[in-house]
Amino acid sequence: MMSLVNVNLGNVVKKQYLFKLRSYVGVFTSLVVLQLIALLFSLGGTGGGGGGSGNFHVMINYYSGDVVIIFTILWVFINGILITTKAYREDDFSFVTNRLTNNLSNILFLLTASLVGGVTAIASGILLKVIRYFFFNAEPIITTFSISTIEIIYGVLATILYVFLFGSLGYLVGSLVQLYKKLAIILPVAFFGILFALASRDIMLVEGVGEFYFKETSFLLFTVKVITTSGILLIVSLTISNRQEVRL
C-alpha cells in the first residue's frame, strides 16, 4: 500500500496561488493593454472648459490618471468574475484542491492583482503628466506635479483598496452566477432597475454609496470600511461556493 500523503491547508493554498501566478498570465497582459488604452484617452485631457472675451482666451484642461484608475477597476471587476468561471475553476481541480483552498488562493490572487493594478494605475497617472509636460506643447498654468512622497503612498494604497473592493465585488457576482446561471441576466437588470427606480424618487444610490467610501476623509476609517466590505463580500462568496460541484 502506498502510504497516504498528508497535506495541510496552508501548503495547498500556497501551491495553488503560485500555480495561478504562472497560469493566469493573460490577466496581467490584459491589464497592460487596458492601461495603455486609458492613457491614450487621457492624453487629450479628462475634463476641461474654456472662455474668453475679445482677444483674451482661456483654456482649462485637467490631466489626471482617473481614467486609468476607472479602467483598472473595471479590469479587476471583470477578472474577479472570470476566475470563478468553469474554465478557471476546473483547471484547479485537475490538481490537488478543495473548495476552500480554491477560494483562498483566488482571494490571494485577487489581492496580488489589486496590488499590481493599483501601483501601475498611479504610476501611469504620473507617466501621463510627464508625457504632457515633455512632449506636448502645452504650458501648464497650475501643475500638481510636485506631490509629496507621502501623498503618492496614500494614493497608491487607496487605489489598491478601491481595486480590491471591486475585485471582491466581481468575485461575489461571479460566485452567485456560478450558483445560479440565470443571475447573469437578473443581476445587471436588477442593479440598473433599482438604480433608476430610486433615481426617479430623487434617491441617488450610487452617490450615497460613493459618499460612504470615497468622501471619507480619515484614511484609517476608509481602510477599515473597504476591508470590512471586501471581507463580507468574500466570505459570502466562500460560503455559497462551498457546495459547488465540478466537472459537471
Binding site: N6, V7, R22, D91, S94, L100
Partner: peptide, 21 residues
C-alpha cells in the same frame, strides 16, 4: 471537500481541463 482525498486520489477522464497559458 477533503484535502486528504484530493491529494491521494486522481480521476482521469476526458473532461480534465488544463490552463491554456
Amino acid at each position: 471537500n477533503s484535502l486528504t482525498v484530493s491529494a491521494n486520489t486522481i480521476l482521469i477522464d476526458d473532461q480534465m481541463s488544463f490552463s491554456n497559458s
